[in-house]
């Protein structure tokens, strides 16, 4: 990584930091379009983070770790979906339940397996392979910022494109959107809105599992609460991104930049760590309020 001037490494790390937001938000977009508020993103991510790093270390294979981490997250998503949709529980409460469950389960398992509730490092774990294309990397600025990240980062971009295609170009996407907009229309043609809701939840399980894997495998460690509110921020990104993949990409870019900037600020100024940690929340809540003010006046301005 060339250190020409300070914004370049900051932008480079922006790209890295935004990936988990992006993945979680893209999965959350499916549930949002299917008409459900998915608070469980945070917990699903946490489960993905825990199982992917632990199982990668146990199997010695990063790939297997990622796959199994995603699988664990999908299983959790299924439970969340089953209770919400089939047992007709309030999805907002079950979302909280998923988060609490993930929090409890990861700590209990970590303690029982490693005898430790703190940071668990996996020394034997190999690094995520970087995608390095020397010829592209030599392009000034662009090459510095966009090239040389690990493969999961690029996979997250692929997921955005894939999501856009699925949502707008396939019958499945059409039905998911129909489910959210008018479940009666889906029911009237003999399809089950509940089933499409479940598909959306499982997709969010998939992307959140991957998002968690990105977090923990990049670090080569598991930390309790490693997701530290990213699921919530992703949720806000869905709204700020106007519920479309491109908008979400931009919103996540902004959040990634904010976090990257605060990390950088910590390096050069003497800001307490807790403030740095609080920064993404503050940015997010401010962005959210600003967004709702804009929406409010747009709506109000449209009347007389």
């Amino acid at each position: 990584m060339s250190n020409t001037s300070f914004p370049i490494p900051m932008l480079h790390s922006t790209i890295r930091i935004m990936a988990p937001f992006l993945l979680a938000a893209i999965g959350g977009l499916f549930t949002e379009l299917a008409g459900m508020l998915n608070i469980a993103l945070e917990g699903l991510m946490l489960i993905g983070a825990f199982f992917s790093v632990v199982l990668a270390a146990a199997t010695g294979s990063l790939f297997l770790g990622v796959v199994l981490g995603i699988l664990a997250s999908i299983v959790a998503a299924y439970v969340f979906g089953f209770i919400s949709l089939n047992l007709r529980a309030n999805i907002f409460i079950t979302g909280l339940a998923t988060n609490l469950f993930a929090e409890g389960l990861t700590v209990v398992l970590a303690f029982q397996i490693f005898g430790n509730k703190g940071v668990i490092r996996f020394a034997n774990l190999s690094k995520l392979p970087d995608l390095s294309i020397p010829s592209l990397q030599r392009i000034p600025v662009i090459g510095d910022i966009f090239i040389g990240h690990n493969v999961l980062i690029y996979i997250s971009w692929l997921m955005v494109i894939l999501a856009a295609i699925v949502i707008y170009k396939t019958p499945f996407g059409l039905r998911i959107r129909g489910t959210g907009s008018n479940p009666g229309a889906i029911e009237a043609i003999g399809l089950s809105p509940r089933r499409y809701g479940m598909y959306a939840i499982l997709i969010s399980g998939f992307t959140c599992g991957l998002a968690g894997a990105v977090l923990s495998l990049q670090m080569g460690a598991f930390v309790p609460g490693i997701t530290s509110g990213r699921g919530w921020i992703a949720l806000v990104a869905i709204y700020l991104g106007n519920k479309n993949p491109l908008g979400i990409f931009i919103a996540c870019l902004v959040f990634g930049f904010a976090e990257s900037f605060s990390n950088y600020a910590q390096g050069i100024m003497d800001v307490p760590a807790d403030f740095i940690l609080a920064f993404p929340y503050i940015i997010t809540v401010v962005a959210m309020i600003a967004y709702s003010i804009v929406q409010h006046y747009r709506l109000k301005g449209s009347e007389g």
Partner: peptide, 15 residues
């Protein structure tokens, strides 16, 4: 039982 945001054609072929 229509989806307001969809086009006529999309509504008709839905499913």
């Amino acid at each position: 039982k229509l989806v307001p945001d969809f086009t006529v054609a999309e509504n008709v072929v839905l499913g």
